[in-house]
Each structure stands twice: as structure tokens, then as C-alpha cells.
């Protein structure tokens, strides 16, 4: 009775091992997956690392102080107008040809007497206006510049008349003075009219000289 039982147990053990080992192996192969997933994963990791490095570098730059520039107030420079030249008649440098006259426009403003002296130093006189066309031209010029200009016209208290620097009396049909007729009054040409201003006031001025044949 005992011997048959022992034999039966041994047989069972062998049978178990043989039958159960083979089935799982093909399934294990499936677990690995395909190769391209691994490569993709590696590339993804590398990309992430690069992005993180870039991020840290940029943050570092941002935290740094930016370049410093000094304050500068933009001052608009005055452009000099080109000189008009002809083969026969020629004006000196920095002067403008207007018909038969060379005109110089001052770059600064000063009292009338200083303008007169400056013109004299340049071998010229303060502007004398001969006719309505010339007046209109100069008013347009004043408008373009946004400035007013002393000319060679002053009030003479003794005679109670306006006189040009060449001694002639103002013809009121040519131009009319707006403002006070009193002592220390000098003519100031603007874009619309000719004013009487204080001779002591600062203003730009216009010099003229007669054109010479070259």
C-alpha cells in the first residue's frame, strides 16, 4: 500500500515542470516593445535638458543690468539753405540771391543796433525794401522760418517819421507799420505784417548788399 503512493507524487512534480515552463516565453518578447520608442525617449530627454539650459541662460541675461545711456535732449539743427548761383552774378558764401541783392539772415537774435553793426562788419546794410513784391517775398520767408526780422527802418522822434537807413522817408503806400510810433521803435518784419518793436528787443535781422558782377 505505501510504495504506490510515493511513486505517484514524484510523477506529478515532473509533469508540472514540463508543461508550465514553455507558454510564457513568447509573451515576454512582446514586453520589450519596438526600438524607435527608446530612441524617441532619449531624444526627448536631451531636448528637455537643452531647453532647461537655455531657460537658465536667458533668465541670467534678464537679471543683469541693461546698458546705460546718458540723457540727451534732441536739439533740432538749423539747415542752411543752398546758395543760389549764376554764371554772371554771384553772392558770397552763406548769402542768398534775391533778384539783384544778396541777403544775409542772422543765426542769432540781438538788439537792432547790434544787427546794424553786424551788417556793417559784413560790408552791408540792414535790409531796405523797394517794392511790394520784395515785401511779400520776405513775409513768406519769415513764415517759413517761424521768425521775425529787424530791417533797416527806424522811427525818428524829431521828425516824427519812419526813415530807411539810406535816409529816405518811408512811403506808407508801400508798407504800413503796425504798432506804436514812438521813440526807440524799429521795424520788424513778420509773416503777415511789419511791426513796430522796441529797438532794444532781441530779434534776428537781415542784411543786404548790392550784387557785384564777377
Amino acid at each position: 500500500m505505501d510504495a504506490p503512493v510515493l511513486y505517484a507524487e514524484l510523477h506529478l512534480a515532473n509533469t508540472q515542470g514540463l508543461r508550465c515552463t514553455s507558454p510564457p516565453s513568447p509573451r515576454q518578447d512582446a514586453c520589450w516593445g519596438s526600438g524607435w520608442h527608446r530612441v524617441a525617449l532619449k531624444l526627448g530627454c536631451v531636448g528637455l535638458i537643452l531647453l532647461l539650459m537655455g531657460l537658465s541662460v536667458l533668465v541670467g541675461f534678464l537679471v543683469q543690468k541693461p546698458p546705460i545711456e546718458k540723457c540727451s535732449v534732441a536739439v533740432q539743427e538749423n539747415k542752411t539753405e543752398p546758395t543760389v548761383r549764376s554764371t554772371i552774378l554771384e553772392c558770397p558764401r552763406d548769402w542768398h540771391l534775391h533778384w539783384n541783392k544778396c541777403l544775409f539772415i542772422s543765426q542769432t537774435s540781438r538788439p537792432w543796433a547790434e544787427g546794424l553793426a553786424d551788417c556793417s562788419l559784413r560790408g552791408a546794410t540792414l535790409l531796405l525794401i523797394g517794392d511790394g513784391k520784395e515785401l511779400k517775398l520776405l513775409q513768406d520767408f519769415s513764415k517759413g522760418k517761424g521768425q521775425q526780422f529787424f530791417i533797416g527802418l527806424k522811427y525818428v522822434q524829431e521828425d516824427k517819421v519812419w526813415k530807411w537807413m539810406n535816409g529816405s522817408i518811408l512811403n506808407t503806400n508801400l508798407l504800413r507799420i503796425t504798432g506804436k510810433n514812438e521813440e526807440n521803435s524799429c521795424a520788424l518784419i513778420s509773416h503777415t505784417e511789419v511791426f513796430s518793436d522796441s529797438c532794444s528787443s532781441d530779434n534776428h535781422w537781415i542784411c543786404q548788399k548790392t550784387l557785384k558782377r564777377v
Partner: peptide, 25 residues
């Protein structure tokens, strides 16, 4: 303030004055 006017303005020389009816910026 230089000049002989009633109204002050800024010129290259500093502060000058002119008559109130004259035209400036």
C-alpha cells in the same frame, strides 16, 4: 530782463522783452 517791451521772451541771449502785439513762438 533786457529789451524795452512789456512781454518777456526767451532768446539766444537769455530773457529779452518785446511789445505784446509782435509775433513769436
Amino acid at each position: 530782463i533786457r529789451g524795452g517791451g512789456q512781454c518777456g521772451f526767451l532768446s539766444d541771449n537769455g530773457i529779452s522783452s518785446g511789445r505784446d502785439y509782435t509775433h513769436r513762438k
